[in-house]
Amino acid sequence: MKKLGALLLAGTLMMSFVLGGCGSSSAPASSDSGAKESKATEAPASGAIKVGVVNNPPSESGYREANVKDMESVFSADNGYELKTFYSLKNDEQLQAAQGFITEGVDYLLISAAETTGWDDVLKSAEEAGVKVYLFDRMIDVDESLYEAAVVSDMSAEGKLAVDWLLAQNLPEYNVIHIQGAMGSDAQIGRTGALDEQFASGKMTKVVQQTATWDEAEAKKIVESVINSGEKFNVIYAENDGMAKGAVAALDEAGITHGVDGDVVVMGFDCNKWALRELLAGKWNYDGQCSPFQAQVISDLIKGNKTASEKKIINEEKGFDAKTITQEDIDTYGLGE
């Protein structure tokens, strides 16, 4: 009995450790702690610019996958770079890797940090070693002088772009089902903000506002419950593509038309390729994107093609309308496959 108790206690401890780990990381893929070893690209050309990239692992999300691919394709040997990469969700592992890159003598250090704190010492030693630092995707809490520039997304601009598009549709009335992402995440806050303003001003009516925590099946349940209650709605604003797909599945089962010629306007975010194809087919109406493509901007800055007017460079966000989207857009901007 004593043994059993001890085992259970150990189990609870381990559980709480695992769960605690989930809570502290902002990414959903907390189960993936496997940090991937850094690897140098093959056959470094002499005189190539040495770049060390510290990023989150591609398994974190479709966004990150595209982000990592973008980095690898822009900082390629063909473009005159020698790339070293390190991927981890853990800040301390990232810090060690960054320190390692500085010791190895990279010319540039590119960082998308897991957490905003703890980076002062590493960035100072980079400064002493003459390594220039660029931040991408995420800001870090350090003095501005410690990095050259930060290329980041403005999440609220992304939400505003989408809501402005919705207003431009001039619907006779706006009865919106708003399906939110995991509460408190950057993407959720940014994508919710602009719509909340419309609810507050009375221009749009909130039929329901629920979080499905990025879960497709949960989004379907939320929309189903609205349909079953018989309330009127004509807009679905889902904060990512997966949840929009869940919502559409509920509409399909209830025989409600959606998309370009349908009764319900469907809006998603992230611009996965499959979602953009739904747009092209006219089944959805809008897809917004928080752009994961920062590598070209940084490359231009490194090579001196452009100079940064400000330390914080806001990456241009995109939004696609089903009426104007082309196959080319899907190939260029779509994430995943």
Partner: peptide, 20 residues
């Protein structure tokens, strides 16, 4: 608990994409 912790990573490796 072992599979609970690593299962979803394994699921990711199978397809390699976030949402196929």
């Amino acid at each position: 608990l072992i599979l609970y912790t690593c299962g979803r990573s394994i699921a990711y490796w199978i397809n390699g994409g976030a949402t196929p």
